[in-house]
Nucleic acid binder design. Structure first.
Lengths: 116, 116
DNA sequence: GACCATACTTCGCCGCACGAAGTATGGTCA
DNA sequence: TGACCATACTTCGTGCGGCGAAGTATGGTC
């Protein structure tokens, strides 16, 4: 009975979440994603290549992203990925979930900011 | 203060995050945490026991939580855990990080709420 | 007496993050 | 020219952590 899968736990991890988020702004190739994620996360999330390409494979296998096109720029191959509708829906749902999760804590510990 | 760890990736996963969040309201024992987390997450996060006790061990080893006391209620042992200062600092930092991460997406896809 | 609920323990699998090394190409610079 | 670095992607191995499942113990229910 595999059916459910709903399960409640995060469908994607933080690195994966940011990959999807980066693609909201349009198709990007691997290294482009790394740089874009760095910007989106305000320098916090530096995707290691091993993480990136592993995640891209899994996301594509799940149909959350797809290969948009492949180019060769100055002899170097570039594979551009785009978000699918499923991917867009998922990253949006994740954002909402994170917002709710964050509020669980913020509403308790920092109604003002009495901390640190 | 172990907390540092900058690195970028999530210091804790979602189940672990909710365990810490549950303890913000005061010490709880294992099964009490499971129930409290279920409430905090609006029914979304159902902690499996395997996840719970494994996570509690790791959190205690890292000094993020500590054993408050042990009771025996009706012959059944209960071990109460409380949040340490480090644990409180970490869950607060995580909340902020999630909020920022969520906003990356929400500001792009649902400026109003034109979705689903 | 069988069975269920509470409470916690332990085991093992597997998915995933990620460091590291490898391949290929073009540009820089001494 | 040859050493070296940057871009771009591939592949591998390790290790951590989530989680299903089975196990132990006790008290209450029927």
């Amino acid at each position: 009975m595999v059916v459910g899968m709903v399960k409640g736990s995060p469908a994607v991890s933080e690195p994966t979440y940011f990959i999807l988020a980066a693609l909201l702004d349009g198709p990007l190739h691997g290294h482009g994603i790394i740089k874009h994620v760095l910007g989106l996360s305000e320098g916090r999330v530096k995707l290691p290549v091993g993480t990136l390409y592993g995640a891209l494979d899994r996301l594509a296998a799940k149909g959350l992203i797809a290969v948009e096109r492949e180019e060769v720029v100055e002899g170097r191959p570039r594979r551009y990925f785009r978000l699918t509708d499923d991917g867009r829906a998922l990253v949006t749902a994740e954002a909402r979930r994170m917002q709710q999760a964050a509020s669980v804590v913020t509403s308790r510990v920092l109604p003002g900011s009495a901390f640190t």
